[in-house]
Computed example of a mutant assay.
Amino acid sequence: MVELKNPEQIASMRAAGLVVAEMHRRCAEAAVPGASTGELDRVAAQVLADHGAEPNFLGYGGFPGNICTSVNDVVVHGIPSDDEVLRSGDLLSIDAGAIVDGWHADAAITVLVGEGHSPEVLELNRVTEESLWAGLAAMRLGNRLVDISRAVQNDVRRQPKPPSGKWGIVEEYGGHGIGSAMHMDPHVLNYVERRRGRGPKLVPGMCLAIEPMISLGTPRTHVLADDWTVKTDDGTWAAHWEHSIALTEEGPLVLTAPDGGRERLAALGVTTAPDPLA
């Protein structure tokens, strides 16, 4: 079953989303050459404490961090560590979440550490973030779940191809419903799988975390012996972008974007709902 939220619950999720946005801002500032991913985890923990929010990653299935830090060919679920030191030219995905009054928010950004990134890596990050916003723009009344998947897939496919000849849209992992728990129905694919059908209608009160993960090569991945870290099979680098979004009678609201997604969605012809905390 898909959990539908009332306006008060969406307001609590928006509060959690703003905490996540601040976690990303502070962690991105701290993601400099010589910093460890363990240091970034402590930055995130401090933001949570400053806002009286709870972590939803720490302890989830035994996960040991407040955030996931995924470097270069790590697609998702990288574990923060003081032994992992960032270098100039690294590509770092920071996946973060927070709970406010029992309601969850979840989002990911990919940041460029230092300098010296190849044109292919810069393009990878741009393509992945742009595909996320294409998916968010499909979160409209009257659409169905598959319309989000199709929007992400089509946006990636229309991009100029990288030297490998294709963008790898990771299939084993995707987005999800979010609300009173971090991971809920429905599962949100980043590609269209015909046998799944069109999926549920997008209706007021539905909240989703949309999160494309794109690589410079294969879409296939494997999990390391720590049972968390997910890497690409061919060692190519990957980017990960995610936002939590709520659909209301007045339109979508990107819960984890500081401006509610207003600027980016307006450029795509979508008007966002009023911010309940504004």
Score class of each variant (00 low, 15 high):
V100F: 13
G165M: 00
G116H: 06
G174N: 00
G235T: 03
G269V: 03
I67A: 03
T221I: 04
L247C: 02
A246G: 06
L122F: 06
E211T: 14
V223H: 05
L132H: 07
L268Q: 12
D147F: 07
L48C: 12
M182E: 10
A31E: 11
H183P: 01
R150G: 04
S81N: 12
P200I: 11
A44V: 00
E250I: 02
P276E: 02
T272F: 05
I94Q: 10
G59E: 08
D50W: 09
R194P: 09
G78E: 01
P80S: 02
V2Y: 03
N143E: 13
G168Y: 12
P274G: 08
G179Y: 01
R198A: 09
H243I: 00
N56F: 13
D147S: 08
V188L: 01
I109D: 08
G168V: 06
R262K: 15
E54H: 12
P186K: 11
V188K: 06
L265Y: 00
G38T: 08
M182H: 08
G114T: 05
A225L: 12
A107R: 08
F63W: 13
V121L: 09
A49G: 04
N6L: 08
R42G: 00
Y173Q: 13
A49H: 06
H117E: 02
C68A: 14
Y173C: 09
M184V: 08
G165A: 00
A278E: 15
L124D: 03
N6H: 13
D226M: 07
A266K: 13
V146L: 08
G38S: 08
E263L: 15
A53W: 07
